[in-house]
Amino acid sequence: MAEPQRARPKPTPETQHFWDGTKAGELRLQRCDACAHVYFPPRPFCPSCASRKVSIFKASGKGFLYSYVINHRPAAPGFTPPYAIAVVELAEGPRMMSNIIDCPQTPEALELDMKLEVAFQALDDKITLPVFRPAKG
């Protein structure tokens, strides 16, 4: 029997650019051309002012650890507990859920507000997930 698989995102027309970005090693966000609001998750209009004039741009990939849990049970398919489920606040403002790599999954190592930088984890030849690791330097 095959190992249970990690939940795999299925892009939609509105989110395809994001997943194309992670595959290319870029974290892509959107900015409103009318009011400059930066937002996530992707959509082809501004959730702040409703303008349809929005642009996709490459984010810095910098952020900090906003909050997290360390999940022990039940574990999601494809995960070995304990593992942290984190929410990262990006330098550009939006927050996103992710995982923290290259770091012990412990309360001692996972300090709130610690600086993080994006990394990319290929699930398969189509989908690459954005994850974060402690920022160097």
């Binding site: 990690r6 939940a7 795999r8 995102p9 299925k10 892009p11 939609t12 989110t15 997943w19 996530f40 998750p41 849990v69 999940n71 049970r73 039940p74 574990a75 999601a76 398919p77 494809g78 995960f79 593992y83 489920i85 984190a86 996103m96 859920m97 992710s98 995982n99 699930l123 997930l129």
Partner: peptide, 20 residues
């Protein structure tokens, strides 16, 4: 659903039910 926003931007990071 894998093509919902939750399915794309939360589920892949290991959330599994309300306790997580």
């Amino acid at each position: 659903p894998a093509d919902s926003l939750q399915g794309q931007f939360e589920a892949p990071f290991g959330v599994y039910g309300p306790p997580s």
